[in-house]
Simulated assay, not measured.
Amino acid sequence: MNTDTGFLFPPADERTRAAEAAARAALAGAGAYLMPPADVLACLGADASSWARFAAHWQDLTQDEYAARRGTHRLRRYGHFSLSPVTGELRLLPHTVFVQPGKTNPLYASVDRSFDPLTDDFVADPVLRQVIGLLGRLAGALDVAEWWSVKVHPFRVVATAEGAGQPSPEGRHRDGVSLVSSLLLDRDNAAGGESTVYTPEGDEILSVTLREPASLLVSDDRSTLHDVSPVCPVDAARPAHRDVLVTTLTPG
């Protein structure tokens, strides 16, 4: 796999600069922000065709065995990148186990978890590169970094009449990073999946159900907690799924 994924550049027009400025101000202030799909797609330079191609990668995820042990049907992959905030250079780092810092995720803190890597096609997708670039610009409102450590997690949570899907089986938690984000790719036959960001004292900052593809929720993981409610089928005769891209950034 070619680890050099190229260079990323900031948006060039007034609309996208204003959209990013609004997100940065909310992150630095309240600590959370929901970026509307139209703004996200404009910032990514994505049209219907490129978005559909990107969303198709969620058909090629693999079983999360750790979640399965707790009764959750969840598919995922994992990749780790470095991003230069100065040059925009993005590089895929060698694939390793995923470990979250102690005193963050109550289920998996300091536990080595091995997930299948991102596919070559996923890594090479221009939309992924633009998503990471956008998040790098937003993260600059929270921290200063020589380079950003970017961890990328495409998830599909599946629910049936026999069992709800758990996007966040660990409950209310932090990820131990600077910026945490959830980008909705698709949801089918799914009810629930409400995302909530809290203060450390438990007060709600923002609560929203990501319903429209390209909705992007970002939050300051240093000063907030987050959780997602279970997903259930609308039509009990069919399975439901919720596809999101969770991406975190922290100074490298």
Score class of each variant (00 low, 15 high):
19 A>M: 04
51 W>G: 04
209 T>L: 02
30 A>V: 09
105 N>L: 09
70 R>P: 00
37 P>N: 07
167 P>L: 12
139 A>E: 07
75 L>P: 02
206 L>E: 11
160 T>E: 12
90 L>T: 03
48 A>N: 11
29 G>L: 05
40 V>D: 02
53 R>L: 10
202 G>M: 10
88 G>C: 06
171 G>V: 12
141 A>Y: 08
193 G>C: 12
104 T>W: 12
245 L>G: 00
193 G>Q: 10
97 V>P: 00
91 R>A: 13
238 R>T: 02
159 A>W: 05
176 G>E: 11
202 G>Q: 11
74 R>Q: 14
236 A>T: 15
94 P>M: 07
150 V>Q: 03
114 S>A: 12
31 G>S: 03
236 A>E: 14
76 R>E: 06
162 E>L: 14
136 G>D: 04
25 A>H: 09
223 S>Y: 01
36 P>C: 03
19 A>P: 00
7 F>E: 11
209 T>A: 13
54 F>G: 00
26 A>K: 05
203 D>G: 10
207 S>H: 06
3 T>C: 07
116 D>M: 07
91 R>M: 06
122 F>D: 07
86 V>T: 14
46 A>W: 12
206 L>A: 11
40 V>P: 00
212 E>W: 00
240 A>D: 01
168 S>N: 14
113 R>A: 07
98 F>T: 06
144 V>N: 12
55 A>F: 01
34 L>W: 03
179 L>W: 07
45 G>H: 12
38 A>N: 06
235 D>C: 06
139 A>N: 14
130 Q>E: 14
210 L>R: 05
21 A>Q: 13
242 R>C: 04
48 A>T: 12
122 F>R: 05
75 L>K: 08
200 P>K: 07
210 L>C: 04
244 V>E: 04
76 R>K: 11
209 T>P: 02
144 V>P: 00
95 H>Y: 01
40 V>Q: 02
108 Y>G: 00
68 A>D: 08
172 R>L: 13
161 A>P: 04
95 H>L: 01
119 T>K: 02
159 A>Q: 03
198 Y>W: 12
131 V>K: 05
77 R>N: 12
31 G>I: 04
23 A>Q: 13
146 E>P: 11
212 E>H: 08
248 T>V: 10
9 F>P: 00
55 A>G: 14
203 D>K: 13
98 F>V: 02
203 D>C: 01
71 G>D: 06
55 A>V: 05
159 A>N: 03
31 G>K: 04
230 P>K: 05
242 R>P: 02
117 P>F: 00
127 V>N: 01
112 D>M: 10
7 F>N: 06
183 L>R: 00
13 D>W: 00
175 D>P: 05
52 A>S: 15
126 P>A: 09
248 T>L: 01
82 S>H: 14
70 R>E: 13
119 T>F: 01
149 S>C: 03
27 L>C: 09
221 D>W: 02
47 D>I: 10
73 H>D: 13
106 P>Y: 04
149 S>K: 02
212 E>N: 09
227 D>E: 15
149 S>M: 04
249 L>Y: 05
134 L>C: 08
17 R>W: 05
91 R>E: 06
116 D>C: 03
239 P>G: 01
18 A>T: 10
178 S>A: 15
248 T>E: 00
248 T>R: 00
118 L>I: 09
188 D>F: 03
179 L>A: 10
102 G>F: 02
63 Q>K: 11
